[in-house]
Simulated scan of single mutants.
Amino acid sequence: RPSAPASSRASQQGYRAMPGGRYASRSGGVRPQQRLTSVRVGDVAPRERGDRAQKTYRRYVVRLAVIAGIAAALIIGGIAVYGSSLFAIENVSVTGVEHLTSADMEAMASVPADTTLLRVDASGIRNSLLQNAWVQDVEVKRVFPNTLELAVTERTIKATVEVPTDDAKTVRKWAVASDHMWLMPIPDQDSEAGKKTSPKIYEDAAAALSVVDVPYGTKAGIGTYCTDATVNNALDIVSGMTTELSGRVKTVSAAGAEETKLVLDDGTEIAFGKAENIRDKERVVLKIMEENPGVVYVNVRVVERPTWRSLS
């Protein structure tokens, strides 16, 4: 078999791999064989996820550091402002008072002269004001930059009660609220105490229900709730009325629960008794008065057996 030409053999040998990781070039020189590396497809995704996780972590650390720095600055600034005289209280505003004066409220609030809106003890001021019998509720508001507002809800006079004195020789008129709290003894308007009392108190007392003939031994105290059964019975009767009759009751004689008697604005007397079946008793009284002109007395202590008396 004829042998291949020398030039052809040399050409074929130039592309043959040589021992030791070398191969011959076409020029006849020998150069190192390049190593080929391979990566499995399954390794790519975990590696990319790791890179992303590291980047996310670094961003998280940077953000956390920024937030911590801002928080520290705010805390330091807040402490500085809290301890400073910024927002010092220069005005105390009082709203909602009629029976108490603004001066009375400011004195009871006792706001320290060197305090600020940030340091003021609003809860303590509120609790202090609630100790006054006239104050039913109060909201302490901070009005920046320098005003403290006391928004008061006052109790009102439901009735005046003639309470016997300890020596039983006379009576003392007391104001009582709708929730049966004793508000204050009402001084004579021409006395020294009366001149210091709000005119609104005398105005409301004159228009309020008058409870008289209260038994000896009835106790009244400012800021305490009435515990006398006869007085509470009288107040409950008028509070429980739902017809126009309630507006006509001017005086209640409260010698005892069974003996409770109402006196209307025209002088008509109604023996009402206990604060029971109030609406039924109202209905019967109104019907009797409508059907019997000139009636001056109605007894509904036992609502099923009413009696009455008229001038005609």
Rank of each mutant, 00 (worst) to 15 (best):
R1E: 08
A4D: 13
P5E: 07
S8E: 07
S11M: 14
Q13E: 13
R16D: 07
A17Q: 12
M18N: 14
A24V: 05
S25H: 10
S27D: 15
L36A: 12
S38W: 12
V39Q: 07
V39I: 15
R47S: 10
R49L: 15
R52D: 07
R59M: 01
Y60Q: 08
V61W: 06
V62E: 08
A65N: 10
I67M: 11
A68V: 01
G69H: 06
A71N: 05
I75E: 12
I75C: 14
E90Q: 14
N91R: 14
N91Y: 11
V97D: 08
L100Y: 02
L100Q: 11
S102V: 01
S102G: 15
A107N: 08
S110Q: 12
P112S: 10
T116K: 03
L118C: 10
D121F: 02
D121K: 00
A122F: 01
N127D: 13
S128C: 10
L129M: 07
Q136S: 11
V138G: 06
V138I: 12
E139I: 09
K141H: 13
K141D: 14
A151C: 05
T156Y: 09
A159T: 00
D167T: 12
A168Y: 15
K169G: 11
K169V: 07
V171T: 15
R172K: 13
M181T: 11
L183Q: 04
S191I: 03
K195M: 06
T197R: 01
T197C: 10
P199H: 00
E203S: 05
A206G: 05
A207W: 00
G217F: 08
I222G: 09
T224Q: 13
T230M: 08
L235T: 03
L235C: 04
D236A: 13
G240H: 04
G240F: 09
T242G: 11
E244V: 03
R248I: 00
R248C: 02
V249D: 06
K250W: 04
T251E: 08
V252G: 07
V252S: 02
K261S: 00
V263G: 00
E269K: 03
A271V: 00
G273L: 04
K274I: 00
E276T: 11
E276R: 04
R279H: 12
R279M: 10
K281C: 01
E282H: 08
R283K: 13
I288M: 09
M289V: 00
G294E: 02
V295L: 05
Y297I: 02
N299A: 04
N299F: 05
R301Q: 15
V303F: 14
L311Y: 11
S312C: 08
